[in-house]
Amino acid sequence: MKKKVIVACGGAVATSTIAANKVVELCKKNGIDVEICQVRISEIQSNLPADLIVTTSKVKRDFGVPLITGMPFISGMGVEKTEASILKVLQG
């Protein structure tokens, strides 16, 4: 069953590109069929529904969808934990 992941940042031009690529690699490695929707934070709402939202910027709103910060993909700190929680949502 194909999973849809929204990857968002402020301008959808830099950090979300990195995070989106990491999510694609993680899903490929774990045999998860995924569709990535890379958007600006302001475009999340209009791109629902989704199975997961990964953001590299602060998002306060609750979209009723699991939301995980993709910050570790940028800073390099805590990547394993982030990947584990992404897999938990997508394989859960």
């Binding site: 031009v13 830099a14 590109t17 990195i18 690529n21 390099g76």
Partner: peptide, 17 residues
């Protein structure tokens, strides 16, 4: 246009980490 410059961005990330 999203997802452009992935290679350059990955290099920058490798540098800052």
């Amino acid at each position: 246009e999203h997802g452009a410059h992935l290679d350059e961005l990955q290099r920058i990330i490798a540098i800052i980490q």
